[in-house]
Simulated scan of single mutants.
Amino acid sequence: MIVSIVAGARPNFMKIAPIIEAIQVAKERGADIGYRLIHTGQHYDKKMSGDFFEQLGIPLPDTNLEAGGGTQAEQTAAIMVRFEKELIAHMPDLVLVVGDVTSTMACAITAQKLCIPVAHVEGGIRSGDWTMPEEINRLVTDSITNYFFTTSEHANANLRNSGVSEDKIFFVGNTMIDTLLKQTPKFIKPQFWDHYGLAEKEYLIMTLHRPSNVDDAVQLQSIISVLEAEENSLPIIFPIHPRTRSNIEKFGIKLDKVIAVDPLSYLEFNYLVMHAKGVITDSGGITEETTVMGLPCMTLRNSTERPETCTLGTNELLGSDPQMLEQALVRLYSGNWKKGSIPPLWDGHTAERIVNHLCEIFQVKSEEAVSVL
């Protein structure tokens, strides 16, 4: 059995690393399973892509489609045209896509057009917000997926409610957490730690990249103003997305207490997260990592596709009103943040479960099954 594994953007890389490792372990134990790794090139900047391959021990891709740049429509088209050629030249038994980026949707469509079954890791998650490009990617991908590997009962329920049969849903956990738990001992202190006089639990981390937060001058200025006006605020480290930096410059927004730094590698960024007092974000994946770390997380969005990080974890959904952020910071500084727990099966063994299910589905012969603890 040959699996074509697709990755294209920063959120994908930490999700595929443990799956590749689990396939390699299964093969060493006698399973007739292999893979081709396809990098679509959706993120082509070294900090957004290359560092992840190096730090997470991901093998070099078998091919890079180099489909980065352009509008979403242009990028989708480029990925589909180039991925079709890859599939025709190297026909797999299954295409495995992860997450909810443009590459996820584009490659799922291309595979199904060639009658190749698709498995979706992180299938079933929903925000309900169709203004998010990721939500469209999820809906389209899941509408043509054959096998769903899910992170939570919320995702399972979403799939059942959309008519997916139970035998296609496999509740396995979260591969991002596999990577987080494995890599924690390898986290790297950023070089600027001493330069900014950072100390454990004496600073915050912020990430912003959603168009609703960073493409609107009034909204972005309002968020920054709340943080700059905080009398009791700690330093705020802001690894800044290239588009966000461009908008800050274009809108003439001044940063003082908010310290903008370049995008960080996985090991550096998570070192900062682990030692921070709290996180401000509009990302989805970071809310999962902070939940496992037990770290307060403030999400500047009106909806989340990962509700378990709020109902079970340490995340709070603040909405789009920056004043809600001000109130959340008061609770954080006063020590009144809620205590969270880790969602079921977020235990570091998700990739093993995925590979075991693939071997069962495709009746892969093996001398010894992959061990799942």
Score class of each variant (00 low, 15 high):
Gly252Lys: 08
Phe171Arg: 09
His39Met: 08
Tyr44Lys: 01
Lys189Thr: 15
Gly41Trp: 11
Ala73Leu: 11
Ala119Leu: 07
Glu289Asp: 08
Ala17Pro: 15
Ile109Gly: 02
Arg331Trp: 00
Pro307Asn: 04
Tyr266Gly: 00
Leu264Cys: 02
Thr207Gln: 05
Ser222Gly: 04
Leu255Ile: 02
Asn146Tyr: 05
Met14Lys: 14
Thr299Gln: 04
Gly335Ser: 10
Val98Arg: 01
Ser165Ile: 07
Gly30Leu: 08
Asp62Trp: 04
Phe238Asn: 04
Thr350Pro: 02
Asn146Trp: 01
Phe170Ala: 15
Ser265Arg: 04
Val3Ala: 12
Ala351Arg: 03
Leu56Lys: 06
Leu60Phe: 12
Glu153Thr: 07
Ser103Asp: 05
His241Ser: 14
Ile253Phe: 07
Gly57Gln: 11
His90Lys: 13
Gly252Met: 05
Phe192Gly: 03
Leu267Glu: 01
Ile361Val: 08
Ile144Gln: 07
Leu198Ile: 10
Ile136Cys: 12
Tyr266Asp: 03
Met80Val: 08
Glu166Gln: 15
Phe13Pro: 14
Gly197Glu: 12
Lys15Ile: 15
Pro344Arg: 05
Gln191Gly: 15
Thr244Lys: 02
Phe148Gln: 05
Gly50Asn: 13
Gln75Met: 13
Glu228Asp: 07
Ile361Gln: 09
Leu159Pro: 04
Thr150Ile: 10
Pro343Lys: 03
Glu305Met: 03
Asn161Pro: 05
His241Ala: 11
Leu264Phe: 04
Lys113Ala: 11
Ile5Pro: 07
Val292Gln: 02
Asp45His: 14
Lys47Trp: 14
Pro133Met: 13
Val164Cys: 15
Ala67Thr: 08
Ile88Gln: 10
Leu373Val: 11
Ser225Pro: 05
Arg160Val: 12
Val172His: 09
Ser225Gly: 09
Phe13Glu: 15
Met132Gln: 05
Phe171Leu: 12
Leu325Gly: 00
Pro133Ser: 06
Thr102Asp: 06
Thr291Val: 04
Leu325Thr: 00
Phe53Asp: 11
Thr311Arg: 01
Ser303Leu: 00
Met48Pro: 04
Asp100Ile: 08
Val164Pro: 09
Gln191Trp: 14
Trp130His: 04
Thr311Asp: 00
Ala199Met: 14
Ser162Val: 14
Ile109Tyr: 08
His275Val: 02
Lys15Arg: 14
